[in-house]
Every structure is written in structure tokens, then in C-alpha cells.
Design a protein around this nucleic acid. Structure first.
Lengths: 182, 182
DNA sequence: CTTACCATGTAAGGCGTTACATGATTCA
DNA sequence: TGAATCATGTAACGCCTTACATGGTAAG
């Protein structure tokens, strides 16, 4: 209880706006949070059970189109827990760039191979950037939006900013690594 | 063996340039890699034992100034392992920004508190940026440097680029969150 | 003399991933 | 009819952090 489990808070945060199934939660995370957070089913379902046990959420089992669903809702206790966590300072941001690790030791494989790592990083970013740009556009033009939109916009803007910085760095790195293509 | 344990490779990477104690390894990580990787003693020492067991490193116990030290060196097998890992494509970069999480759910605590989270993020970055700038300067001016310097420079440049993007974003976010200070 | 740093390690426990297992529905 | 998507979960296992435990040296 002392140290806050992050996934608890992510799920409570999502449930604070709408009722969701475990499956929906995964989708929300993969869509809106993917640029700074991730989670697998193997962690989501057990976490939901834990939250249910702690009475942070309630579970409603229904049958829809012949499919069994478990819809979760946040309780008052859950809202309190979420707010408490939101209120305390950030403990730690964690980044682990395997790409950078391979770059750091690049001397051991040479420029050519290192350049390929940079290129593949670049491609990944270029592929994801349009989605982020879209998010920003959608959120900026949603006039009638709820207050919460403002905060979604902030995180999307962060993604755009950082991804563009990545790309700028890629260009410089490729120059230094003697890229002769294009 | 199939999936490569990253810390194995980090340690082998560091040992590929110089002999080090576990304590030194921690220092190297905290200094040069801290912007994109971290490790604690609780993971370093057991990992070193594992590497010793797999004959990736050798251990030499000496007494220096009355202090017991264990100095590790990389073996040929270790070098091969490292190169193999460096050679394969990056599996996954992992980022987990707790700050962004708190931002995303900012609606639940309001603009003022959210703004404080952004400010504290900004401060942390501003405090670390000068070290990164220094690294870049030192590495750029090290004319007689080894080939490896080029790769260290690339990672330091990455840090500078990204940290500056963070700061730009902070400025925008603070404006949106109605910062009235200064 | 006491604080900081050097130096090594273990134990408990948390958190999370991957792979597996199952089964229904929708759409082409 | 087969692939994709909806939907829920478990089990094994890996990796890491924190806290604990210990003890020496250097510097003020």
C-alpha cells in the first residue's frame, strides 16, 4: 500500500472516465498511452482481480451477443486511491533504450552495422509519428470537448515533440556514421 | 540463451574496454548510461556471478590498500556473446513516463496540481542537462580520442536533443495549463 | 570522530512478460 | 471455411529493486 503500483493507477485512471472490460483497457492503453506506457493481458487481468479484492472496482458480468464480458467500474475508494496517487510527486520516470545501448558499444561492430540500428530506429519512429500527429489534430479541433481533452492533448504533444527530436538526432547520427545513401 | 539478458550485455560492453570491479561498473552506468539505462548493485553482482559461471568473464581477487576487490575481465567467449547481441536488431525500447501518466489523468486533480508535476519534471531536466552538454563538449574536443568516442558522443547527443525537446514541451504545457508565474 | 565513499554481497518480494489454453463471433 | 477480432484468464519464469548486512579507508 505504501508504494503505489502503477498499473493499478493506470487502470483506475481509465475507469474514472468510463466503464471498461479488461480487453477494452488493453485497447485504450495501446492507443492512447502507448507512447509512454505499456501493459499486457498477463498483467491487466490479475491487476483487475487485485483491485476487485481491494474494493477499488466492481465487476459486472454480462452476456452480450453470446459473449461473456466482465465490465469493471471504479468505486469511491478507487477514486480516492487514484487522486491520492495523482497528488503525490512523481517517483521515477524509467527509460531503457536498447537502441542507445547498442549505439554506445557501437565500436565493437563498426559504423555500418551501427548505422543500420539507427535506420531501423528511424523507421519505427516515422511509422508511428503520423498517428501521433493525428491525435494532436483531433484533440485540438475538438471544441466541445470535455476538460479531460486538454490533458490528453498535452501527452500527445509530448509524443510529437519527442519523436521529432528523435528524428533530428537520427539525421545527425547518420551523418556522423557516414551515411552515403539517398 | 535465446533471449539476451540486457544487463549481461551492458556489463560485457563495459568490460570490453577495461577491467572493472562491480562497484566501478555501477559508477560507469550511473555516469555514462544514466540517460537511457540503469542498474542497481542488487542486479550487478548476481549478474557478474552468472557471467563468471558462463565463462564470459574472469574474476581476479586482489587486496588494494587493505581493501578487497574483485576485478572482472571479459573473455573471448564474452566478446563473442557481446558481438552477437550487438549484431541482432533491437528488440524493444522501453519507456515508462510516470510524469506523463499523471498528466494524462490530470483532469482528476486540476490544472494547478498538474502544472506542479510539469514544473518538477522541468526542474529535473534542467538540472541534468548541463552534465550532458559537458559530455558532448568533452567528447567533441577529444581529438586524439579512440574510435569508441564517436559512439559515446552519439548517445550524449541523443540525450541533449531529447532533453531540449522535453524543455520545449514543458514551456508549451505550462502555457496551456495557465502558468502565471514569472 | 564522524561522514562520505569504497566495496561486496544476499534475501524477500514485486512486477511484468511470454506462452499457453480456450472459445465465441464476424467478415470476406 | 478460415482469418481476424472479441474476450478472459493461468503458469512459468525472468528480471529487477529495496532493504539489509558488513566492514574498511579517507578526509574534514
Amino acid at each position: 500500500m505504501a508504494v503505489e503500483k502503477k498499473l493499478d493507477c493506470v487502470i483506475l485512471g481509465l475507469l474514472s472516465h468510463e466503464e471498461l472490460t479488461g480487453y477494452d483497457i488493453k485497447k485504450r492503453i495501446d492507443k492512447a498511452l502507448k507512447y509512454f506506457w505499456g501493459a499486457s493481458y498477463g498483467s491487466i487481468y490479475p491487476t483487475l482481480n487485485g483491485l476487485l479484492n481491494d474494493e477499488m472496482v466492481t465487476k459486472m458480468e454480462i452476456k452480450e451477443n453470446g459473449r461473456n464480458k466482465a465490465i469493471y467500474s471504479i468505486t469511491e475508494k478507487g477514486r480516492t486511491h487514484l487522486k491520492n496517487w495523482l497528488d503525490i510527486p512523481v517517483e521515477k520516470d524509467e527509460i531503457r533504450y536498447e537502441t542507445l545501448l547498442k549505439l554506445f558499444f557501437g565500436d565493437d561492430i563498426g559504423e555500418k552495422r551501427t548505422l543500420e540500428h539507427v535506420k531501423s530506429f528511424e523507421m519505427k519512429i516515422r511509422k508511428e509519428l503520423p498517428c501521433l500527429d493525428d491525435s494532436v489534430n483531433v484533440l485540438e479541433n475538438a471544441k466541445c470537448a470535455s476538460e479531460a481533452h486538454k490533458y490528453y492533448l498535452l501527452t500527445a504533444m509530448f509524443g510529437v515533440k519527442v519523436y521529432n527530436a528523435y528524428l533530428e538526432w537520427c539525421m545527425e547520427a547518420e551523418k556522423i556514421l557516414g551515411n552515403r545513401e539517398k
